[in-house]
Design a protein around this nucleic acid. Sequence first.
DNA 1: GCCAATTGCTTGAAGCCTAAAGAAATTGAA
DNA 2: TTCAATTTCTTTAGGCTTCAAGCAATTGGC
Lengths: 164, 164
Amino acid sequence: MNLDSETKAVELPEDHGDELRLWLRLLTCTTLIEGTVRSRLRERFDVTLPRFDLMAQLDRAPEGMTLSDVSKRMMVSNGNVTGLVERLVESGHLDRRTSVSDRRVQVIRLTKVGRAEFRRMAAEHETWIADIFSDLTPKDVRELMRLLAKAKGSAQKAASRRAL
Amino acid sequence: MNLDSETKAVELPEDHGDELRLWLRLLTCTTLIEGTVRSRLRERFDVTLPRFDLMAQLDRAPEGMTLSDVSKRMMVSNGNVTGLVERLVESGHLDRRTSVSDRRVQVIRLTKVGRAEFRRMAAEHETWIADIFSDLTPKDVRELMRLLAKAKGSAQKAASRRAL
DNA sequence: GCCAATTGCTTGAAGCCTAAAGAAATTGAA
DNA sequence: TTCAATTTCTTTAGGCTTCAAGCAATTGGC
């Protein structure tokens, strides 16, 4: 039995430098792309990224979504969604109504105008993303998808461990 | 000569769905991890993520940095840095002085207290990150690093193309 | 030296975001 | 039925963030 190795595990700090560098690189990539997308959305359509993201969620839900659904999907706070929705209703992109079966619940949908405008933006948005990743081969893309899925699973597990 | 393939390239929309899904997954991963780190920083040290990030930049620059340097490194606006620095000077973590050679320039550094506190936070922060990525093998980590580096390069090229 | 352009930073307006507290509606156990 | 617990959403305070406009200092071409 090797006492040293046991002692080591407890007393010596492990080397987590690689993971830290991975996190920083992930963050840099995302920040870079997010910034590009944000400024293009503003220049071309005078819309903010959070508004675009919210409309994207609703575009996939023709029946509408509750504010809680949106909050979970976008991984932002409830209060945040309340404000975002308020502004998008104000600008005529969203329709909001109280659920008949539960009067606490607000159901929101894209208006006709909102949907048309989103589709127009989304088409162009997709080409920006393709441009941003244009140096990656299809294999790179697949491999990144796979590894990020694994990373996501790992992060979710860690988050739920913490939540206890 | 294949006329069809030329026509296709111009008239038919290409399929960029994979790149879009990759972007969404990248964003989800980052948001998830960022949220975990933010709440742990708040719970354990009552500090915000932007403050931590700024201190991390300064920890690596014993000679100090100018606000512009910080702004570029953190990829945030100048005005943002002005406010962040203001609050961290106020709380005694940062020292700020006007450069003698150029009176427009503000040089900021960690104070003794700021550095000590950052080191304490950073040590724990590193273990959180390791925990978050604990399902990834060393090979996964290497491979992700490589592919993200490639993605970063691609995104930077796209951003500079756009800037013209 | 002069002054136009540039650089570094700050300010102000608007919007995004969180955490925490609170209001209103629903649920479910006794 | 009753009412405590839960759920859904809003509100508030504080901080983060961007963009655009503006001020002050420096630089570079003449």
